[in-house]
């Protein structure tokens, strides 16, 4: 199977993730979109590593995983705080600040 197919798949996944972030209302789902984008990036890294025949890309993927995990910790904490206050995780309800 052609290696470039994986690069295309990574781009498609990334685009789906970005669309999710831009279109969905629920903060948790938005956040899942971000995670999908990060994982698409991992796939791209690994694909390019295979293409170039070096290990750098695979190491980078590990870094991205760790950072994504750290982001989950902080992100879910903030979303849960909002949810406990407002009983809603919809990003449309978060509208006190505007102007």
């Amino acid at each position: 199977m052609e290696v470039t197919n994986y690069a295309v798949l990574a781009s498609v996944l990334f685009a789906i993730g970005a669309t999710t972030v831009l279109l969905r209302r629920n903060a948790i789902v938005v956040f899942m979109g971000v995670e999908l984008m990060l994982n698409a990036t991992n796939l791209a890294f690994v694909t390019f590593a295979r293409l170039h025949g070096d290990l750098t890309g695979q190491v980078l993927a590990f870094f991205v995983m760790v950072v994504a995990a750290a982001e989950v910790v902080v992100g879910l904490a903030i979303i849960v705080t909002i949810f406990r206050t407002r009983r809603s995780a919809s990003v449309d309800d978060v509208n006190l600040l505007k102007g």
């Binding site: 972030v21 903030i78 600040l97």
Partner: peptide
């Protein structure tokens, strides 16, 4: 509430 909202927006 404003503070938490700011954090959520900034984070997302």
């Amino acid at each position: 509430l404003l503070s938490q909202e700011a954090a959520a927006k900034y984070f997302l």
